[in-house]
Design a protein around this nucleic acid. Structure first.
Lengths: 125, 125
DNA sequence: TTATTGTTACACTTCTGATAGAACAAATAT
DNA sequence: ATATTTGTTCTATCAGAAGTGTAACAATAA
């Protein structure tokens, strides 16, 4: 799985990492049960600090995407917690959609966009 | 239009304000050409600082949602810039959808969610 | 034992968010 | 014309987050 940091982005490094890993899980680039690189290895690979990677991992653990052993960054998509996930997704979606509406993006276009993302991520299998 | 600040939120105040105003424009609660309260009035109403409101307004202006006269915070949905808006929306949507997929939200559910938001915001008229 | 793992603690710098007071030019109201 | 209100800008302060760095710890694996 390819992880890449944009140092010119206004988005925090640990957040870029978190988001990319979430996308990786969604696209099955990282399978359930597989392990991520160690915090030190990944930090060196990306040219960032160990604690920054650790922060991403800790956040992903807290959010229920990872479970961490001592010697393995095991990936677990536990806590479906669908009700809460739906509420959170709704809140975020509201703002994204609102911005789109202001810019003239129609419902059909938005729906197609979501559909394409699901297709791109490969919901089948 | 009702604007409300959640002081316990981890989201920045000026960002909460920005998002709510964007939603307000999308839902036509604030019509094109209408004006927002003055930075000082709104600040006092919400119990926050003038500069915080000004930061929201300045950001909305920079992003092309507002145009500001001296004595009127005129609302203008200029710069459709649909191509750029689509790209931005796609990037944000990718993360939101990825999180949803990890939590077991299906394509159908996501599509319905977007559809309901459009319906709720009132795309007609 | 030795090396590597996630984790924690402390320190330091830089940046952002938020508040505050003051002042400015332009526009409105009286 | 005078006084007020507008967005805007400047300087300043404070708290917290982000990022880096060094060091150490307990648990696990080689």
């Amino acid at each position: 799985m390819l992880l890449k940091i944009d140092f010119n982005s206004d988005e925090a490094i640990y957040m870029q990492l978190r988001n990319q890993i979430i996308v990786g899980i969604a696209t099955s680039e990282i399978r359930d049960g597989e392990s991520l690189p160690s915090v030190r290895d990944l930090a060196e690979t990306l040219g960032i600090n160990m604690h920054t990677v650790n922060k991403s991992y800790a956040l992903l653990r807290q959010e229920g995407y990872l479970k961490l052993d001592r010697r393995r960054g095991a990936v677990v998509s536990v806590s479906p917690d669908k009700m809460r996930a739906t509420m959170e997704m709704l809140e975020e979606m509201k703002v994204v959609v609102a911005k789109g509406i202001c810019r003239g993006i129609t419902r059909e276009e938005a729906l197609q966009m979501v559909d394409e993302i699901y297709r791109y991520y490969g919901t089948e299998e």
